[in-house]
């Protein structure tokens, strides 16, 4: 297994193209190293992408831009992502209790895992776009379209994620994140992120309800039914309850970690909790 640590993006792209599917870009290593025995036979080249200058958080042209190798704790601590419009990032990271993982894992790694992780659920609720780079240039794919299935993304051979972008949220936007797990140091069993845009009178203009970790495909999914209940309505406890019940349009997986029935219950509770958190922000 070869190891490369390029310092230029083009160099990285060239390596990824050269080795094709036998190359693996790694960032925080937290997933890769934990699963290296399984990946051993397939991987010929490991391309460390941490030295490509992709660790940053900035706002340009009303767009929030987060470099792919930005760590979860960098998101937690950065002013932009821990307050104001984007404090949902810090709130999401806060639900991952393991400090060492937060110091290592990157937003790019989270996005690419497309499984039992938290950040993609939040990014889906915030209509994020994933910026993909490769020898042929860069392209943007919406979070919605990026995940194809468990550990399966829209990345083509030779490509990698370079940045995550968030459009400026509509005014008065507020978010909420909630999570269910088995112990305090666990992968999520269910997570829910919501984003609401409210009029001055409290009417909901736009709603996103995103459910992760529990879904059949293993990747985050929006509960369209819950969103429809919320839009154009004034949000009160009864409506929250209704939206929570409606979130059963997201089908849940059944495995040894949790039954689909329990996950469905937790999705409902999670939607309720996340909406309440969002409302409480006002």
């Amino acid at each position: 297994m070869e190891y490369y640590s390029p310092t230029e993006l083009n160099e990285a792209y060239a390596l990824l193209s050269k080795y094709g599917d036998a190359a693996i870009p790694v960032a925080g290593n937290t997933f890769f190293m934990g699963h290296r025995e399984e990946l051993f036979d397939e991987v010929e080249a490991v391309v460390n992408i941490k030295k490509l200058g992709l660790s940053y958080i900035k706002i340009e042209d009303d767009t929030l831009k987060i470099g792919a190798t930005t760590t979860l704790n960098e998101l937690f601590n950065h002013e932009i992502t821990s307050s104001g419009d984007y404090k949902i990032f810090a709130e999401t990271v806060n639900e991952l209790n393991i400090n060492e993982v937060r110091n290592m894992a990157t937003i790019g790694g989270e996005v690419c895992i497309a499984g039992e992780v938290d950040m993609p659920t939040t990014l889906l609720a915030y209509d994020a776009n994933i910026i993909i780079g490769g020898s042929n240039g860069t392209r943007s794919v919406s979070m919605q379209d990026f995940h194809l299935g468990y550990l399966n993304t829209a990345l083509e051979t030779g490509e990698m994620v370079v940045e995550v972008q968030l459009p400026k949220p509509i005014e008065n936007a507020r978010g909420g994140f909630s999570k269910f797990e088995r112990t305090a140091a666990d992968l999520p069993i269910v997570n829910v992120a919501v984003r609401l845009a409210l009029e001055n009178d409290g009417t909901c203009k736009e709603a996103r309800v995103s459910v992760g970790a529990a879904t059949l495909a293993g990747v985050p999914k929006r509960s369209i039914a819950a969103e429809e209940i919320l839009v154009n309505q004034k949000i009160d406890e009864a409506l929250i309850e209704k939206a929570a019940v409606a979130s059963n349009d997201v089908e849940c997986i059944n495995d040894f970690r949790a039954s689909s029935e329990l996950r469905a219950l937790w999705v409902k509770c999670g939607v309720e909790d996340a909406l309440k958190k969002a409302i409480a922000q006002g």
Binding site: S5, N29, T30, M33, K50, E100, V101
Partner: peptide
């Protein structure tokens, strides 16, 4: 757990080459 520039990380998840 060990410290990387003062911050705790899991050394089992860190590639030594890096």
């Amino acid at each position: 757990t060990i410290l990387m520039d003062g911050k705790p990380v899991f050394s089992c998840l860190r590639m030594a080459v890096d």
